[in-house]
């Protein structure tokens, strides 16, 4: 019975979002700041640090416009310098072989998300890899910090990308930093390579970020009435356009009542 009902109505999708690890880790706080390391050098990647910083705003916007997720990414500007971030090895905290392969040259654990350019070829494996992201600081099962490194080796192809592609790459890497893995859906930002044009998140991305950072609103606070809804960045909600909505409703009713009056059939009174 259940099977028949499901077959009647159930729709299927071919692709699914994935997560970075088997325990579905996400940042412990749903408000995460994205920084550019103040000492980084991105000459090979074809940009100044100021240009790199200017990409953060548009990149985080992809993830900030999902209403079913409470994730809030903030542009933090420049961070203080992180040890070994420009030339060091990027390792996950549990990856002992990686850590042992570069004694004293492992990028230090960070808080929030730090972006830098890094010229150590071992981190990328291939010149066609544009960037790599590793959450390298955990608090229990929650992410405390992640590092995004942009390929700054002599063979990098990052400098060949258009500005919008660079934004897309950073947004994709931020997706890894917040806990998402790849998907096979070409429409999704978390597809493993850049696509012709990237304007919004795909359905998989939206669902993935909603799974990791689900929006939870007190149902008693309908339309913010009980003060239970705050803006996603924690600030108080802006004044709701109640009077415009009310005026539009009254105007609409008046208009239809007028139409009804005009359409009323005329009656002749008998003399």
């Amino acid at each position: 019975m259940k099977f028949i009902l499901l077959c009647l109505f159930m729709t299927t999708n071919l692709f699914a979002y994935t997560l970075n690890n088997n325990f579905g880790s996400s940042f412990k706080n749903h408000k995460v700041t994205v920084f550019v390391d103040e000492n980084t050098n991105c000459a090979q990647a074809g940009m100044t640090v100021y240009e790199l910083k200017s990409l953060i705003g548009p990149a985080i916007k992809f993830w900030n416009n999902v209403p079913t997720s409470n994730l809030v990414l903030k542009n933090g500007g420049f961070s203080t310098a992180t040890n070994n971030i420009n030339h060091g090895r990027l390792c996950a905290p549990t990856d002992d072989s990686c850590i042992n392969s570069a004694p004293g040259n492992v990028i230090a654990p960070v808080e929030d998300i730090i972006i830098a350019c890094n010229d150590l070829g071992t981190n990328y494996g291939s010149s066609s890899v544009l960037a790599v992201t590793v959450p390298n600081n955990f608090s229990g099962r929650k992410i405390a910090g992640a590092v995004i490194i942009i390929n700054e080796t002599a063979q990098t192809i990052f400098d060949d990308l258009s500005r919008s592609d660079k934004i897309g790459v950073l947004a994709h890497e931020i997706g890894h930093a917040i806990g998402l893995g790849h998907t096979e859906d070409k429409a999704a930002l978390m597809y493993f390579r850049t696509v012709d044009q990237r304007s919004k998140l795909g359905k998989d991305d939206m669902r993935g970020v909603s799974y990791l950072y689900p929006m939870q609103i007190d149902a008693g606070g309908l339309l913010g009435g009980c003060g239970t809804i705050t803006n996603a960045d924690g600030s108080p909600p802006s004044n709701p356009p109640f009077w415009q909505m009310g005026a539009a409703l009254i105007l609409m009713i008046a208009l239809f009542e007028l139409l009804k009056l005009l359409n009323r059939p005329k009656t002749c009174s008998a003399a």
Binding site: A16, T18, N21, N22, G24, S126, G181, P214, A219, G221
Partner: peptide, 29 residues
């Protein structure tokens, strides 16, 4: 989610990623 894992293309190779294994809800007005 019912868990499980998937090999996905990553750079020039493949990596293992994971499917969600919990029940979670988003609630919106």
């Amino acid at each position: 989610g019912r868990g499980g894992k998937s090999k996905q293309r990553n750079g020039n190779g493949t990596s293992t990623f994971y499917y969600p294994d919990e029940n979670r809800s988003s609630i919106n007005n």
